[in-house]
Write a protein that binds this DNA or RNA. Structure first.
Lengths: 232, 232
DNA sequence: CGGTTCTTTGAAGGTGATCAATAGAGGTGG
DNA sequence: CCACCTCTATTGATCACCTTCAAAGAACCG
């Protein structure tokens, strides 16, 4: 294997985990590892020769830009996530590293062939795509309604669950992969409002800020209540 | 064939269009047609025995509800669209008919079997799922930023393109499948603001309202300019 | 025609955006 | 090691926009 699949941290969770060792070995020959530093661009909107990739370590954001250059974050990608618009003639969005990251990249033609050769891979990608769809809809739910406080609470609660290993219980401490500006962007607010509301959440004893990026959940139930979410 | 595939209006565009006639015939034996009247529920959030469906005629909305009962529209489904969370243990969202609709429904187990038996179907659903993902992200882009006018303009422009047969040029006249309240919901605004802004768009000569649901685009370029979108 | 629902229009108030300045963190080079 | 610079975050004051509350008008259906 040209890629270090044997020691890959996402070998049991990425899309390729459904392949047998031989199949995975064959696919890995077509792939290339790549490392990105924080802020580096993986794919650019408009690229015609788009590739796909599985994120191994780090974090990415998928974002659009309006014609005035304002950025809108559409999705975050965590390890074992798959990125790539395999059926579009060109990439619609930029993909940027939020932190230093490692990936497996594949040329589009190779991935197309792999999907035809390995039906299980197509099913795995279908499953992943539907999960991405669900995440996108969750983000719609967060940003469409409610006050600034509710949106921020919902976003933080969502992140705390993403950071947790158990799917239901939120992590009590986590590091935001985002700057304040990116947080504001996702919540549809301004930096200043986010800063103020975080301060209020801290004063009310709901969270505690640790350094610039760290968040400790002191009262997760209250955070969830503020978010107005319908989850149990 | 138990379903009228031969005369189905979406036989060349739905996911099942990738199947051969015999394959489609076999699948259709497992499916059932269903008609819904405006407002009827197809799937309810929390349903454990979820099914899937292809929309043949009409229009659907996918929506979530927060604990106070407020609805949030997450997606619209047009004919040939596929609905169903095939990998989730239960449905996350309600699916409701916006107008009288016809569908082909399939039990989950039958669709799972079909995906395994017909790899081309899995690929078709993957493609469709990625398109749905792109639509969801477009909606995020619409609702996250900009003024009320920009959001409404973007939404209307999006609908006009969906109503058009040619993928790029907007339809000059179309019927909204949504009430004012649903429009407001999708744009993240109130009914009153939508009503006011529609009035302003009409006074400025950008659109014309025809009856309660009809919209005529008088100045599509201006509408697009107001939307702040990055499209060419 | 009366009832219900949806839409339009009006006036007041609040929430978050904007503008502006300060403070802190991280990095580089002297 | 510290000075310096840049980038990010916090805090404050003002204002505009949208929401909220309220009522009247229009469409639909019995």
């Amino acid at each position: 294997m040209s890629l270090a699949c044997a020691s890959c941290p996402v070998r049991d969770s990425a899309a390729c985990s459904v392949l047998s060792d031989e199949e995975r070995g064959a696919l890995s020959k077509a792939g290339r590892t790549r490392t990105l530093k924080r802020g580096e661009l993986l794919f650019a909107a408009g690229d015609e020769q788009t590739a796909c990739a599985t994120l191994v370590t780090g974090a990415l954001k998928v974002c659009a830009h309006d014609r005035e250059g304002h950025e809108q974050i559409l999705s975050l990608v965590h390890p074992s996530g798959f990125i790539g618009e395999m059926f579009a003639p060109f990439a619609h969005h930029d993909v940027v590293a939020l932190t230093d990251s490692q990936l497996c990249t594949f040329a589009r033609v190779d991935m197309e062939r792999a999907i035809e050769d390995y039906p299980a891979l197509a099913r795995a990608l279908l499953r992943r795509s539907q999960e991405d769809l669900h995440s996108a809809r969750t983000l719609i739910e967060l940003t469409a309604h409610g006050t600034a406080e509710a949106r921020l609470a919902a976003l933080l609660y969502d992140f705390s669950r993403a950071a947790s290993k158990s799917p239901c219980h939120p992590a009590s401490h986590f590091e935001l992969p985002l700057t304040r500006g990116e947080l504001a962007n996702m919540a549809g607010l301004t930096i200043e409002t986010v800063s103020r509301k975080l301060g209020e959440l801290e004063k009310s004893g709901t969270i505690r800020r640790i350094g610039k990026r760290g968040i400790e959940l002191i009262d997760p139930a209250h955070l969830q209540a503020l978010s107005g979410s319908a989850e149990a």
